[in-house]
Amino acid sequence: MSTHDTHSHELEPHGDGTLPDRFENPGHPEHHQRLGDLDPKANKKAERQVLALFTVSVVGTIAFAVAYFALGDPTTDPTKIASATRTENLWLGLTLAFALLGIGTGAVHWAKTLMNDHEMSEERHAIASDAESREAALQALQDGAEDSGISRRGALKGAVIGALALFPITIALPLIGNIGGDWNVGKLKHTMWKKGTRLARDPSGRAIKASDVTIGSVFHVIPENLEEAEHPLDEKAKAVVLLIRLDPRDIKSEQGEGWSYDGIVAYSKICTHVGCPVALYEQQTHHLLCPCHQSTFDVADSAKVVFGPAKRALPQLPITIDDEGYLIAQSDFHEPVGPSFWERKK
């Protein structure tokens, strides 16, 4: 077998005896006939297959309707709602899939086996317009500009641009005025905790006595009067607190003198990173872990960050007890809770 003459006409030297720099495109490969093109039986078989696939689709649709009516309402028996819903979902979904896949595979199989499979070639044309059209386009633009006289009448140009630039204000002004509510971003710096607010269980709202909190427990806390707030969810988003009782000997530091009560400390539950609820308390290490981005805070040491993307400690809520032994706040937090923002220290 020799390569030189059977396959590579481009290796033929030019007339002057030099070889070309590059190979030449050998042109379209030979067309291979399909089985169905040569054998009428195979052709017929392919047709039957396409027919069968479309039939599958029709059967799928019918089965869908049958399933819809035969299965009945899955909520009739409240104890079996999960499994009945699952059965319904499965049957409706499978029959729908058959109805769709039958059409899809049928059409594709048809195209592949029965439609002409001779590759065709079409010429491409340059995307750019030809020089003549470009010139004409340019001329048209110039003529238009000329007609309008915009280049000569400077005041008009300014007026048009000015009017167009200004009119969106009519839409933007009321939109911007209202879209941010009252725009009072100062609210970010305060929560509804104040002197004397009782600490209550989330979500029941039952107030907590100091004696309820055993060592190693963690209470998820809301202000007792949360439901009285105008927007309880907005207030809850800032005010939630985690209450933990440590052995007083384990407390290394806290953010303020006398802010805890008999080993009971209260820290904001809102992460100082991006605001997820920091709620995973590890009793043995006294670490609080945020499940969103794994910022870890040491509750025994002023809730300082020991790992992760948060920078600041969780703000501590100063607490004490009232006459009846219920835990109450001494004041609001002494700094804004939650994620940092530009003016938080202002």
Partner: peptide
């Protein structure tokens, strides 16, 4: 009882 890392959820909680 709050085994290991788990906090205690006493009956008052």
């Amino acid at each position: 009882t709050g085994p290991q890392s788990m906090p205690v959820f006493s009956d008052t909680n």
